[in-house]
Each structure stands twice: as C-alpha cells, then as structure tokens.
Simulated assay, not measured.
Amino acid sequence: MALNTQPNFAEPSKRYFRAFSPGDDFYEMLIDTHRDLTDEQSAMLNARLILLLANHVGDLSVLREAMQIAREGV
C-alpha cells in the first residue's frame, strides 16, 4: 500500500456538501483535543497520537514513506 497524500477525511455516517468540510472537522477536533493543555502536555498528546495512528496503519513501508515526506518539510 502506498501512502495516500490526497485529502482523505470522511465520516461514514455524515454527508458533506463541500469537499473541504471533513478536513475542517478534523482540524477542529485536533485543536479541541489540545485546548487548555500546557506545551508539555500538548507534545505528549502529539506523541501518543502519532503512536496510536502508526499502530493503526501498521504497514512499515507506508510509515517509512510518511516519515521521509514529513522530514523533507523540516
């Protein structure tokens, strides 16, 4: 499986009228998850979230590709 870098957000039970709406919903959830946390707590949350999602993906080649792409922008 190759890394999907195209917008791919959706909620199966929800209809969206604009293509960007699911991405906006994700961003809002992410911001809400970090609300009222200290910088240290926010960094810990990010680390835990990355590990949870990486475990869900599971495919090391996809994870390797994602890490390489993420590092290119730093």
Rank of each mutant, 00 (worst) to 15 (best):
M1D: 11
M1R: 11
M1E: 11
M1W: 14
M1G: 11
A2P: 09
L3F: 12
L3R: 05
N4P: 12
N4Q: 12
N4W: 14
N4E: 15
T5E: 15
Q6L: 15
Q6C: 15
Q6I: 15
Q6S: 15
P7H: 14
P7W: 13
N8Q: 11
F9C: 09
A10S: 15
A10W: 09
A10N: 15
A10Q: 14
E11W: 06
E11C: 14
E11Y: 08
E11M: 13
E11V: 15
P12R: 09
P12G: 14
S13A: 15
S13P: 06
S13E: 15
S13C: 13
K14D: 11
K14A: 08
R15Q: 14
R15W: 11
R15N: 15
Y16V: 07
F17A: 10
R18Q: 12
A19H: 10
S21R: 05
S21Q: 13
P22T: 06
P22H: 01
P22I: 04
P22W: 01
G23Y: 07
D24P: 08
D25M: 07
D25Q: 08
F26P: 03
F26M: 07
Y27V: 09
E28R: 00
L30F: 12
L30G: 10
I31K: 00
I31L: 12
D32K: 07
D32F: 10
T33Q: 00
T33K: 00
T33L: 10
H34Y: 05
H34E: 14
R35H: 09
L37G: 03
L37I: 07
L37S: 06
T38D: 03
T38S: 05
D39E: 06
E40G: 02
E40T: 01
E40D: 02
E40N: 03
Q41K: 03
Q41M: 07
Q41P: 03
Q41N: 03
S42K: 03
A43Y: 02
A43P: 01
A47I: 11
R48L: 07
R48A: 07
R48Q: 09
I50Q: 05
L51W: 00
L51A: 09
L51K: 05
L52Q: 02
L52E: 09
L53M: 04
L53S: 02
N55C: 13
H56Y: 11
H56D: 12
V57W: 00
D59G: 04
D59W: 10
D59N: 11
D59C: 11
L60Q: 10
S61H: 05
S61K: 04
V62D: 01
L63A: 01
R64E: 08
R64L: 08
R64F: 03
E65Q: 12
E65C: 10
A66V: 03
M67E: 03
M67W: 01
M67Y: 05
Q68V: 13
Q68S: 13
Q68A: 14
Q68D: 11
Q68E: 13
I69E: 13
A70P: 04
A70W: 02
R71Q: 02
E72G: 08
E72S: 10
G73N: 06
V74Y: 01
V74D: 05
